[in-house]
C-alpha cells in the first residue's frame, strides 16, 4: 500500500521544527510501523537526505524505547501496543499519517522524533526501589506473597517506561507511570517498610516536572501494557494516608488497607 506521511522534523532542541511530507510506497501490511519508517529512511539516505531520527531498540514491545504520536494518539490507533508492534495492516492504502514526537515540558525534543525522557528516571531515583543491598536478602520463600497480590504487583510492574501516558495526557502528567511503580512495590510485603515514604518522595519529584491528573483516562487507553488507572487511585490513597500518618509514624495503622480485600475479591 501507499501512504503519505507528515513527519515532525526538528534539527535540535532549541530550533523550531516543522512537518515534512514524505511518501511511503509499496508498504507491506505485515511490516511494523518502524519497519515502514526504516524503508522510508533507506530511500531518504539514497536520495541524500538525512534520515528521520526515531528511538527504537528491542522491537518486541518491551524495552520502551520507541514511541511517537501517530495521528494524534500515542503509539497509534491500536490500544495495548507499542509503536514497534503496530503493524501496517491497521492502516489503509492512501492514508495520511501524522507523526509527532512526545510533547511535554519534561520531555524536551532532542531531534526529530526523539525526546529526552530522563525525567522518568528521576522519579525512580526519588524512591522507586526497595532499599536492599546485595547479599542482604532472606531466603526467597520466607516472604509469602499471596498469588493475587503478586499478580496485582505484576500488572503494575509491566510498565515499560515508554512515556506514552505522559504524551497522551492532556495535562502532561506522569501519574500512570509513577503510580505503577508505587503499586508494584507498595502492594508487596517486601515493599511495606518504605511504602509511605516512597510514595511521598516519588510524587514530590513527579510534580516538579509533570502536570497533574484530572482523571481523563487517556493514559490507560494508550498504555502498551494496558496498566489500569486504578493504580493512580491507589497512589492517591497511599499519598493521602502518608500525609495523615506523618512521615515516620509507625504507630497508626493505614486508614485503608484493601490488600486482603483484593485477594478475596479477585480470585
Amino acid at each position: 500500500m501507499n501512504l503519505t506521511l507528515h513527519v515532525w522534523r526538528q534539527k535540535a532542541r532549541n530550533t523550531t521544527g516543522q512537518f515534512v511530507t514524505y511518501k511511503a510506497t509499496d508498504v507491506s501490511p505485515d511490516a511494523s510501523f518502524l519497519e515502514m519508517l526504516d524503508v522510508v529512511n533507506e530511500t531518504l539516505i539514497e536520495k541524500g537526505e538525512e534520515p528521520i531520527l526515531f528511538e527504537h531498540d528491542c522491537r518486541e514491545g518491551i524495552c520502551g524505547s520507541c514511541g511517537m504520536m501517530i495521528n494524534g494518539v500515542a503509539h497509534g490507533p491500536i490500544g495495548g501496543t507499542a509503536t514497534c508492534q503496530l503493524h501496517m495492516r491497521h492502516f489503509k492504502d492512501g492514508d495520511n499519517i501524522r507523526i509527532e514526537p512526545w510533547r511535554a515540558r519534561a520531555f524536551p525534543v532532542i531531534k526529530d522524533l526523539v525526546v529526552d525522557r530522563g525525567s522518568l528516571d528521576r522519579i525512580i531515583q526519588a524512591g522507586g526501589y526497595i532499599s536492599v543491598n546485595t547479599g542482604n536478602a532472606p531466603e526467597a520463600n520466607m516472604i509469602l506473597v499471596p498469588k493475587a497480590v503478586q499478580e496485582l504487583s505484576m500488572d503494575a510492574a509491566a510498565c515499560i517506561q515508554c512515556g506514552a501516558c505522559v504524551a497522551q495526557c492532556p495535562n502532561g502528567a506522569a501519574q500512570l507511570f509513577t503510580s505503577a511503580k508505587v503499586a508494584h512495590l507498595g502492594v508487596l510485603p517486601q515493599g511495606q517498610p518504605e511504602r509511605y515514604e516512597r510514595v511521598v518522595k516519588m510524587v514530590e519529584v513527579m510534580e516538579e516536572m509533570f502536570g497533574s491528573c484530572t482523571n481523563y483516562g487517556e493514559c490507560e487507553a494508550v498504555c502498551p501494557k494496558e496498566i489500569s488507572i486504578d493504580f493512580i487511585a491507589r497512589m492517591n490513597r497511599d499519598y493521602l494516608v502518608a500525609q495523615f500518618r506523618g512521615p515516620r509514624s509507625t504507630i497508626l495503622p493505614p486508614l485503608f488497607n484493601t490488600e486482603e480485600e483484593l485477594v478475596t475479591n479477585e480470585t
Binding site: 509527532e100 510533547r103 502532561g172 509533570f210 502536570g211 487517556e218
Partner: peptide, 21 residues
C-alpha cells in the same frame, strides 16, 4: 492545577485525538 497542567505541555500537538476522555 490548570496553570500547572498548561505549563507541563508548552507546545501543543499538531493533531490530537482522545481515545478515552
Amino acid at each position: 492545577l490548570t496553570l500547572m497542567n498548561r505549563a507541563a505541555r508548552p507546545i501543543a500537538y499538531g493533531e490530537r485525538e482522545y481515545p478515552a476522555a
